[in-house]
Each structure stands twice: as structure tokens, then as C-alpha cells.
């Protein structure tokens, strides 16, 4: 605690850096994975290949990926861009399957009824498929959010500042309190992300929270 009371401005700054790396990566992951997942669900043949590729991408360890990315994309090694790209790759790899499952979870009868009453293909996607996919999608996004926040720390090894800097710095200088602060702050940030996502999910899916209630008694006026 002594260490923290002397160094909290640095912790705050690193927390901000950590946020600025993880939040854009999470957002990009969702934006990229949802259309791919939708495609995978609609065209199972392409989908199988896409999902296979995604699970292979996910198998590549983080630190090596950080080192391969600059060689592929021409970004400098010690840059936030390298970090965001790597995190997005993992996020997409994890989320594509969830997104495909999420669209697969939409009752085809509901989708067909929507077509039958005159939804155009585009409004079926925006007004029916997407909102109904949110609960499953959100479960996946929560997993990705927590693992993204945790993965950001690896960037400290190549010199991208984040809460991970407390881990490497604390290790090199032999200060367990600094390392512990880094671990706890990272986990707290992950929990915060998770709580925000749960709250967002409640706000986005008011129908899902009450679905399990029993149907209300008959109240016909006639």
C-alpha cells in the first residue's frame, strides 16, 4: 500500500493507457466479427472454413503474434497500433463463433414470420436478427472483454505502456507491491468492463429479463 500511495498518479495514467488499448480493440472485434459470424451462419460451407481459420488464429500465442504483426502490417513494434491489431485478431477469432451461434439461436419461425408480414431482407437483419442475437452475442463479448483486458499486459514486454508495465517494472526492480498492484488493477478493470457490458445488455434486451416469468393471467375485456 505504501508503494501505491507514492505512485498512484502513474497507476492512473497506465490505467488510462490500458483502457485506450482495450476499448478500441473490443469495439473493432465486435464490428468485424458480427458480419463474419452472420455470413458463417448463413453459408455453413464458407462458415466452416471461416470458423476453422478463426480457431487457428486464436491458437497463435500472444507474444509471438505481437512480433509477427509489425512484419505483416508495417507498423512499428513498440506502437499501440501493434497492440490493438493483435487484440483485435484474438477478439475476432473468439467472437466469430459466438456471433454465428448467436444468429443461429434466432428462431427461424420468428424470422419467417417477419418476412411474411413484409420485412425487407435488410430490415429482417436490423430489426429481427440482430436484436434477437444480442443475448448470446453479449455473453461472447463479455468473455472477449475480460481476456482482452488481461492480454493488454503482454504489451509491456515489447514496451507498449499499460498496467502490464507495473508487472515488468515491478519484477525488474524487485517490488512485489508494484506487481500486485498491476494484477489487481488489471482484474478490477476487467470486472468494470464486465459490469458495464452486463448493464448494457439489460438496457438493450428488456424482453429477455422478463421472458422466464409465467404468462400473466387472462385479462380479455370480452
Amino acid at each position: 500500500m505504501n508503494w501505491l500511495s507514492l505512485n498512484w498518479p502513474q497507476v492512473i495514467e497506465l490505467t488510462r493507457d490500458h483502457l485506450l488499448l482495450s476499448a478500441p480493440a473490443l469495439l473493432l472485434s465486435v464490428l468485424i466479427a458480427v458480419p463474419i459470424g452472420r455470413l458463417a451462419q448463413q453459408r455453413p460451407r464458407i462458415g466452416g472454413a471461416l470458423l476453422g481459420a478463426a480457431s487457428l488464429l486464436y491458437a497463435i500465442p500472444a507474444l509471438p503474434l505481437l512480433i509477427i504483426i509489425p512484419a505483416l502490417f508495417g507498423v512499428p513494434l513498440r506502437s499501440p497500433a501493434t497492440m490493438v491489431i493483435a487484440l483485435t485478431v484474438y477478439g475476432v477469432a473468439l467472437l466469430v463463433r459466438t456471433a454465428a451461434d448467436a444468429f443461429g439461436s434466432v428462431d427461424p419461425r420468428v424470422r419467417e414470420a417477419a418476412v411474411a408480414v413484409g420485412h425487407s431482407p435488410r430490415s429482417v437483419f436490423w430489426r429481427v436478427d440482430l436484436p434477437l442475437a444480442v443475448p448470446v452475442l453479449l455473453a461472447g463479448v463479455r468473455v472477449v472483454a475480460v481476456s482482452t483486458v488481461s492480454l493488454v499486459t503482454i504489451g509491456a514486454l515489447i514496451g507498449v505502456p499499460s498496467l502490464g508495465t507495473l508487472l515488468t517494472d515491478g519484477f525488474q526492480r524487485g517490488i512485489p507491491a508494484e506487481v500486485a498492484t498491476g494484477i489487481i488493477a488489471t482484474m478490477a478493470l476487467a470486472l468494470l468492463f464486465d459490469a458495464l457490458l452486463v448493464a448494457a445488455g439489460r438496457a438493450l434486451t428488456p424482453w429477455a429479463t422478463i421472458r422466464h416469468e409465467r404468462p400473466l393471467p387472462q385479462e380479455e375485456t370480452t
Binding site: T153, I154, L163
Partner: peptide, 9 residues
């Protein structure tokens, strides 16, 4: 949620 690097260090 535990950062692996944290556990290692």
C-alpha cells in the same frame, strides 16, 4: 481475468 504475466512475475 488474471493477467498471466502478472502471475509469472
Amino acid at each position: 481475468a488474471i493477467p498471466t504475466l502478472g502471475l509469472l512475475t
